[in-house]
């Protein structure tokens, strides 16, 4: 099974028959880049997720599959409502608290599954860019140089 098929398989069982009343997909889409930057922020060594275009690639990947797309619609809607008002208008501390909640939430509920899938996809796209591996003892790619000994 390829990675994306695995993600779809993660999304599928939860979404069959799931119809939250309050899903507002189009409103929620705008917060994706910000949400991903909370997962992968910039620091002294490497750029943020959005600076490497992770949100655009992730959106493309998600949009190409109905079930994933649905998971993201519901997940982002939940995110935008979880603090009582729009996610982007919340204080950084509240946004952080919502992410902590999602990260620890039951995988069999929308917030938990959405966070896990978004994080998995985002880190996968992010670390496939050479700018993202600065600070790690890695070549840009395993070949052509390999890793000749000594290794310690």
């Amino acid at each position: 099974m390829k990675r994306r098929e695995a993600l779809v398989a993660m999304a599928a069982p939860l979404l069959v028959g799931f119809q939250p009343a309050a899903a507002q997909p189009t409103v929620a889409r705008g917060i994706l880049a910000h949400f991903l930057d909370l997962i992968i922020p910039a620091d002294d060594v490497t750029p943020s997720a959005s600076a490497l275009g992770v949100h655009t690639e992730l959106e493309d990947a998600v949009r190409s599959h109905a079930l994933l797309s649905q998971l993201f619609d519901y997940g982002l809607s939940w995110l935008d409502q979880a603090g009582g008002r729009s996610f982007l208008s919340l204080s950084p501390e509240t946004q952080q608290a919502i992410l902590v909640h999602a990260a620890q939430a039951d995988f069999n509920q929308i917030p938990g599954r959405f966070f896990a899938v978004a994080r998995l996809l985002a880190t996968e796209i992010y670390f496939s860019k050479s700018e993202a591996i600065a600070g790690l003892p890695l070549n840009k790619a395993p070949q052509p140089d390999g890793y000749l000994p000594p290794w310690s």
Binding site: I39, I40, P41, T46, A103, F127, L136, L138
Partner: peptide
């Protein structure tokens, strides 16, 4: 377990600045 995606997906949970620092400290 020879690339950062493997670490992020399997061994090192979390997110944010602290998690990024952990990735660098514990990779390898």
């Amino acid at each position: 377990l020879n690339g950062p995606i493997g670490y992020a997906a399997r061994l090192l949970p979390g997110f944010g600045a602290e998690w990024k620092a952990q990735m660098r400290a514990r990779f390898g």
